[in-house]
């Protein structure tokens, strides 16, 4: 059984999907991981409309950036930049914005899964990487892969830290 006092870490976050809020708790006595699904929201048409509308903005911004930023030597700089920026703002959209502005879960899903989810792209990343391999630019391929893998992870962590700081600042005032 999980006692509130025995729980030293309790964070509500979204794993695997956006419709179920999953709370991970660690029992202090047995140090076992407990997974509780707190609620399952109903599939509403509102969420799809929100994701669609925010997805228009995200996808349009991605295409605009790919048109504007063209590196002269064939390095896919635009996709790298898109993915890195997107990963930073994903953490902000999940952690900070819904709490700061007290958004409903519909709008929060639209912002994270819709806006940022359609802004970042995995398929274009793979296509660009394979294009570099086909054109025998193996050094660029290695740089691109390294920058995307570690850059996006780092930016996600930075976003988490920034949103935590911003929320702390909010509590002080």
């Amino acid at each position: 059984m999980i006692d509130d006092s025995a729980v030293y870490h309790q964070s509500a976050f979204l794993l695997q999907n956006f419709s179920k809020l999953t709370v991970f708790t660690i029992d202090a006595n047995t140090s076992k991981l407990n997974v509780i699904n707190t609620y399952e929201s109903v599939i509403t048409i509102k969420r799809y409309i929100a994701v669609f509308l925010f997805g228009i903005i995200g996808g349009g911004a991605r295409y605009l950036m790919e048109l504007l930023i063209v590196a002269p030597n064939g390095f896919p700089f635009s996709t790298l930049l898109i993915n890195i920026i997107g990963c930073f703002f994903f953490s902000i959209m999940v952690d900070y914005i819904p709490k700061r502005f007290a958004l409903s879960s519909t709008v929060a899903t639209g912002l994270s899964a819709g806006l940022i989810g359609s802004f970042t792209t995995f398929s274009t990343f793979n296509l660009d990487a394979i294009k570099l391999v086909v054109h025998h630019q193996l050094a660029f391929f290695a740089i691109y892969l390294f920058c995307t893998i570690f850059g996006s992870l780092l930016m996600n962590l930075t976003g988490r830290k920034v949103s935590r700081r911003l929320l702390q600042k909010l509590e002080v005032f």
Binding site: G55, G58, G59, R62, N83, G86, C87, F89, F90, S112, A113, I116, G117, S118, F119, T120, T121, F122, S123, T124, F125, T148, S152, N156
Partner: peptide, 8 residues
């Protein structure tokens, strides 16, 4: 491009 996602 909208279907696949790197941020999630």
């Amino acid at each position: 491009g909208g279907f696949t996602t790197l941020s999630t």
